[in-house]
């Protein structure tokens, strides 16, 4: 099989996968309504009660827009392959990939991208609709250049998140029951990335720490960019940092996987 057709096949495998479980995906998306409702009513109450125009550096419409987009963004970049990898490692499912002419990493990347490509279209379409609604309702600024820039950084955010969780999945080589650790990590990473509240609600020290971590480049940075609150140099620096972190985690995952595979016992022969 030629090289590129091999990856194309894996990619289409991911696409098929996401189309097969479409009900699940849409229900998942529908479930996003409830956290959005909580955030909406909560911030509305905070803003009307405080009587201030700006809370934590956000105006009312910016805060609502951030909350809605953050929930959607967390859905978009969310990964579940770490559980599959852990199962492959635990039950010996990894064996069949070791003898195949495709690397496990590239298999996972293309499968992931295939799966996300369909979901991305849906979520982005939804985001655009919501942004237009917010624009009509709350005067949320919609700028074409920012939307285009946003579309440029979303793939990096996706890849960064992929490598973070691919590195994490190597933990399964050392602990057979890693699911608890995965779930805890995902929850904390979402908070640290600004998937629940914007990072501006924390004190200056906490915020500085969170900005130094890679997670904010997955959710917080793209949404801030989209809302038009970042300057040109800030956008450039953010996009650079995304690439740097992708490099760091790609290296880390290679290292961890090389170490981990020496521990692999190929259960089930």
């Amino acid at each position: 099989m030629r090289l590129h057709s091999m990856y194309l096949k894996t990619f289409s495998l991911g696409v098929q996968n996401s189309l097969e479980y479409r009900t699940n995906f849409f229900l998942n998306l529908f479930g996003a309504i409830f956290p959005i409702l909580i955030q909406f009513f909560y911030w509305r109450a905070v803003f009307t009660s405080s009587g201030q125009q700006i809370v934590f550096g956000f105006s009312y419409n910016q805060m609502i827009a951030y909350s809605v987009l953050a929930v959607l963004m967390s859905k978009l970049i969310g990964t579940t392959f770490q559980y599959e990898i852990a199962r492959d490692i635990k039950d010996g499912g990894l064996n069949k990939y070791l003898v195949k002419p495709i690397g496990y990493l590239s298999y996972r990347i293309f499968c992931f991208l295939g799966e996300k490509s369909v979901q991305m279209l849906v979520v982005l379409a939804l985001s655009v609709i919501i942004m237009l609604l917010l624009n009509a309702w709350l005067d949320f600024p919609v700028n074409l250049p920012y939307i285009l820039l946003f579309l440029c950084v979303v793939p990096s955010a996706l890849m960064l998140n992929f490598f973070i969780y691919y590195s994490l999945s190597a933990v399964a080589f050392w602990f057979t029951e890693a699911n608890g650790a995965f779930r805890t990590f995902a929850l904390l990473a979402n908070i640290a990335g600004g998937g629940l509240f914007p990072l501006d609600i924390y004190g200056p020290v906490t915020k500085a720490i969170l900005l130094a971590l890679p997670f904010n480049y997955v959710i917080y940075f793209p949404i801030r960019l989209l809302s038009g609150t970042l300057t040109g140099p800030e956008i450039a620096a953010g996009a650079m940092m995304q690439l740097v972190w992708i490099g760091v985690f790609a290296a880390l995952s290679t290292l961890l996987w090389r170490q981990g595979l020496t521990k692999y016992i190929a259960v089930g022969g």
């Binding site: 909560y42 905070v46 699911n179 608890g180 779930r183 609600i201």
Partner: peptide, 27 residues
Amino acid sequence: FANTIEIAYLFIKLLYVMVAFRVGVVI
């Protein structure tokens, strides 16, 4: 691990309280 997961969820719940304290008004 069940406990660590719940601690992470607890953290989310506490964030709502923290925001209320940091805004510091009657909501």
